[in-house]
Design a protein around this nucleic acid. Sequence first.
RNA 1: CGGGGCGUAGCGCAGCUUGGCUAGCGCGCCUGCUUUGGGAGCAGGAGGUCCCGGGUUCAAAUCCCGGCGCCCCGACCA
Length: 495
Amino acid sequence: MFVKAITPRDQDYSQWYIDVVTKAELMDYAPVKGCMVIRPYGYALWEAVHDGLDPRFKATGHVNAYFPLFIPESFLSREAEHFQGFTPQVAWVTRGGGEDLAERLAVRPTSEAIIGPMYAKWIQSYRDLPVLINQWCNVVRWEKATRPFIRTTEFLWQEGHTCHRTEDEAEAETLGILEIYRDFVEGTLAIPVLVGRKSEAEKFAGALRTYSIEALMSDGKGLQSGTCHNLGQHFAEVYGINFLDADGQLKPVWQSSWGVSTRLIGAVVMVHGDDRGLVLPPRIAPIQVVVVPIPSDKEADLVASGVASVREALGRAPAGDGLGRLRFKVDDRPEYTPGWKFNDWEMRGVPVRLEVGPRDVKAGQVVAVRRDTGEKLKLPADPVTLGGTVTEILEAIQGNLFEKAKRFREENTREAASLAEIGEIMETGRGFVLAPWCGGDACEADLKEKTGATTRCLPLAKGLSSSAVTTPAPGTKCSLCGEDARYMAYFARAY
RNA sequence: CGGGGCGUAGCGCAGCUUGGCUAGCGCGCCUGCUUUGGGAGCAGGAGGUCCCGGGUUCAAAUCCCGGCGCCCCGACCA
């Protein structure tokens, strides 16, 4: 056995996940229940998410700002549905400066209620629209059951909050951001996602419509990986975000809000990881290539010159993701043996390992090992071509990880015509189930009760170019209750 | 909020049933030497409020009572 410390997935998936995120040093448990320390290697992944999304937001006209952590209770309670939806999870501050506060303050579970009143101050005219603001911050939701990255009491995210003149514009913004999420998650994190609309029961508290990207983890459970809400005018009405339109009428703005969180890191772990540990897609890997010298007392100079040459070649190579130079590390720590380093870097998910030993230097080669396939390649140690060759391998790994995940999702997406059939699937292989649905709350709740599956999304008929959802052929019956079906829906057990 | 598990060295654990010897083991850590192509070896060494508070007892890691904390699984939520 190699990485003994990691529990195999088929033995205990949860334990495997915990082992990976702790042993690979992505996180550590903090003294407060449900809170975690995001360690440097894990934080680097979050930085990669930031560095991937932030330029995309800015390229589409968004700007960053920062709103306060504390929200007065009276602000949060103004939108009733929103307040009710979040109250059970809110942490309250009741004392400050040694005195009881006149009004208790919510530690933000999301920021609609503090941003709305500010927008009301700032927006007067249709000429002030659209407002396209995003913030990168932390939020707190007092969860009963937590799980590193997937659901923690405090987590990091970005939340965009926009205001628009028309409903169409707000809808276009919502779908436009969902496309940015899809593009980033699929292209950079190599995680295939379903795009769709949430059911009424699953939508954001206070929203008109919620859209999401949904990913499938390797244990067959779904994970909501990003959400975009068309808030309609509800919040504008309660917070008084009105503008004077060109026609002289005072109107509430149309709003959207959207976010992705550190949960994405959990998704990367559970989509790509294997029994040896983490497997990182090259485009987000903090270290894309690790160079492991094979020391030799007798031929130390030979190895040193080989490593120096590789270091030089990699230093000039591009990262392959348009984000600058190749990110590589030479692990020349003398206290560990090569074998130990091989296992350690595999556990940490580094996409490519290069081995440089006396035999290689003599043969004018470098041994490259792919993390995704375990394949060993002998590359010419030509300083002119080596960097480019490595970059090509990284891109091949990126593509392979996405294809592999997509194949897994396709193999684990089934159609079903009855509740019993869905139940059967949930008890065996799990995965996504696509089935016709009437759209009724009652049979959605019944499904959850009997099978543990929830509505993940109603797939969009024309992708992200339109908000129309897929409808079944006329006459199709709901797979759950037998009434006329109005939608096609993806169901799954979810995190 | 229900069910389960756990708290003893940095990490993982044994010891507890049936109270008693200087509280042990593995990994890690420090020093030295030899090593290094898939988790190296030898020698020496450092490291402990046994989760907290009470109780029983000549004597408590161990028994009793109370508390705290964390993890996992469910139900609820990103």
